[in-house]
Amino acid sequence: MSAAAGLAWTDPPADWDDAYANAAHIPGAEAFLRRWPESAARFRAGARALTDLPYADHPRARYDLFLPEGAPRGLAVFIHGGYWMRFDKSDWSHLAAGATARGWAMALPSYPLAPEARIGAIAGFAARFLEAAAARVAGPIRLAGHSAGGHLAARLVCAGADQAPPLAPAALARVERVVSISGLHDLRPLLRTAMNATLRLDEAEAAAHSPALLRPAPGVAAAAWVGADERPEFLRQAALLANVWRGLGARTAFLAAPGRHHFDVIEGLTRPDDPLCDALLSD
């Protein structure tokens, strides 16, 4: 028997749309979509916050800043997902609960969506947001994002790409850590999906804005966090970032959270003592 006979081959997905479909594989998915804005509104009602702060000249270029009691220890950020096509900052306010309870300010942006904006332009808006928020809150910066927001959070600390306006050096120098939660780090598989009719990615743009194909800024640690019950492509995408960036000299971590899927994997950010909140904010 040849040595090759023992190989365990893995085929690519037969259906790329299904490979990146989440709701269809999560029981009770619609309940999450209803609950998020309700939880966010309840949190906002009792929070110390500055809302709808502008960061660029676009109706969606606004962010909310939630403040702790006393002077903030630094600035935490959460960038929402939705495949760059849906959702709004106001759906996710409750995810600031853990950070503010630990003494951090947390900023959550909205941004222009596809098809109005291509992903490269959205990354540019994310950079302008972070610069504006950093100007309001002193201290270290910790970035988190979910799904497409995980892509944007990681993209903000990539060095040496041309397509999106770079993050200003003064802001980048303050970023200590990125936690990409179920992030999309190689955009090229999305070229095979129906959603690309809206995203309008081409091969060049997908490569230019894939964090796993870019170099992380020196000194930034990166954690790739994903639900263990997520679609195989999201597990692969998370492991890919941790693996590649470690090879490029970054301090990285990978964790597949047991029992978590794509919609509930972010809930740990609401609790100051949760491992996910600790991954973002621990010393």
Rank of each mutant, 00 (worst) to 15 (best):
R188Q: 09
F125K: 07
G98V: 06
A138L: 14
L95M: 09
S110V: 03
A171W: 09
D88A: 13
Y111S: 09
L152A: 09
S90H: 10
G124V: 02
A159E: 12
A133K: 07
R188W: 06
P166T: 03
V77S: 15
Q163H: 10
R136S: 13
A76S: 13
L187R: 01
A121P: 10
A76E: 05
A96C: 06
A138C: 06
I119S: 09
R73A: 10
A107W: 05
L108N: 00
P109W: 09
F125A: 10
P189H: 07
L130S: 01
D186R: 12
A159W: 06
D91Y: 14
A105E: 03
F129R: 01
L95A: 04
R142S: 02
G124M: 03
P112I: 05
R118S: 11
A148V: 02
P112Q: 07
L152D: 01
L172Y: 13
L108A: 08
L184A: 07
R155P: 06
A132Q: 12
A127D: 01
T100A: 11
L143Q: 08
A173W: 15
A76G: 15
S182T: 02
F125H: 14
I79S: 14
L130M: 04
S110F: 11
A97I: 05
A170K: 15
H80V: 05
F87V: 01
S93V: 01
P112S: 11
L130C: 00
R128Y: 03
L130H: 03
A123H: 08
I141D: 01
L152Y: 03
H185T: 09
A123K: 06
A96S: 15
P169I: 10
A148E: 00
G82S: 01
L152I: 05
A76K: 08
G103P: 00
A134T: 00
P112R: 14
W104D: 03
I119A: 13
L167C: 01
A105M: 05
V178P: 08
A71L: 07
L152C: 05
V137Y: 05
A153G: 11
S90R: 15
R174I: 00
A126N: 13
A153W: 04
R155A: 13
V179M: 11
T193R: 07
A133T: 04
G120V: 09
A161R: 15
R128S: 12
R86M: 13
A173L: 08
D186P: 13
H185F: 11
A127T: 02
K89T: 06
A132T: 12
V179F: 10
A159S: 11
G139V: 03
L130E: 02
G103W: 04
Y111W: 08
P109K: 11
A171C: 12
E69I: 07
A107K: 12
